[in-house]
């Protein structure tokens, strides 16, 4: 009885929803396209979820401190462009440029905290700056990804496809840092109750700078993993990632405010988004309906969550 009560409690349902929707989608795909149920199939379908998962984690860091990042897609495009040009031709300069990009993100966090600016406005503006720099570095699509990036992304692991291992590693590492370490509690507290954390003697400026820098770092990883897959870059390569990343965090059980996030949920959210696209193609839904159908999947999951939330209240 207690077990059943636990299983139907809103708290459990809430944390199980991301995993359940992912599993449901995966089973539906296996049913429609049995070929997908193989090492090769899973590898192909989930490959592109690695850069999306990394971008989603970047967005999650920003959401943790109650901000919203509308520039992550353009930023990933920039890091991809740097990766396919500077990093490949002059590795030292490339590393410096990427480090500079992360430092830029950290400065942005400082600026937003210092002047108490709305993050949406600042990051929206910055998205054009990132895109502009990316176009300057790579005016026409092209470049080549460094060999080592390509070989990492083409890794063939025994038994379990690389994208699944990568997703697990990303989710667990960030989970350990943000959800179980005592410093992680402080970081999330800055989103939950900034004043209390400030009174307890923590520097809110440093927390914001740290979170923005972490977001920048994951943005760099996202861009590099992306060119590892495509082998060339394009300044516009990741324009959609801004929305994917927000949708991924929210699908994974995160909230826009209150420091309420879940790294493992966010990674599962990113995987779910990737699978939605595959599912619609396997179903042979007409192109005219695919955009709407993708939105419908999002709305269904969010509606389920709203139902659970009502019971919670």
């Amino acid at each position: 009885m207690i077990m059943l009560a636990y299983l139907t409690s809103p708290k459990f349902l809430r944390s199980a929803l991301p995993g359940a929707s992912f599993a449901f989608l995966l089973l539906a795909i296996f049913y429609v396209q049995p070929n997908a149920m193989s090492y090769f199939g899973l590898n192909m379908m989930l490959q592109y979820s690695v850069p999306i998962a990394l971008a989603t984690i970047a967005q999650m860091f920003i959401l943790t401190v109650n901000d919203l990042d509308l520039s992550i897609g353009a930023f990933v495009g920039l890091t991809a462009s740097i990766g396919a040009t500077l990093l490949a031709d002059t590795p030292l300069l490339g590393v410096l440029a990427l480090a500079g990009a992360v430092a830029g993100y950290a400065l942005l966090g400082a600026l937003i905290h210092w002047r108490n600016l709305p993050s949406i406005v600042v990051t929206l503006g910055m998205s054009f700056v990132w895109l502009g720099i990316a176009v300057l570095i790579l005016p026409t699509p092209g470049g080549t990804a460094p060999g080592w990036v390509k070989s990492i992304m083409a890794l063939q692991l025994p038994f379990v496809p690389f994208p699944i291992v990568a997703a697990l590693v990303i989710g667990i590492v960030v989970h350990l840092f943000l959800m179980t370490s005592s410093f992680g509690v402080v970081l999330r507290g800055a989103g939950g109750n900034a004043r209390a954390v400030g009174r307890a003697g923590w520097s809110l400026l440093r927390i914001k700078v740290l979170m923005y820098a972490a977001a920048g770092l994951f943005g760099v990883l996202s861009g590099l993993s992306l060119i590892g897959l495509t082998s060339a870059a394009d300044a516009h390569i990741a324009d959609r990632y801004t929305l994917y990343a927000i949708a991924g965090v929210i699908l994974g059980g995160g909230e826009f405010v209150g420091g309420r996030v879940s790294p493992i949920g966010a990674v599962i959210g990113a995987l779910t988004l990737t699978l939605t696209g595959s599912f619609l193609i396997f179903l042979k839904i007409s192109p005219d309906w695919q955009i709407g159908a993708q939105g419908a999947v999002l709305i269904i999951v969010l509606a389920l969550r709203a139902l659970i939330k009502r019971r919670e209240a």
Binding site: Q33, G41, M44, Q47, P51, L229, T230
Partner: peptide
Amino acid sequence: QVTEQAAQIQNLILQ
């Protein structure tokens, strides 16, 4: 979008 089309091509390979 490039990323979307790359994923689409991979799905077509699978099919």
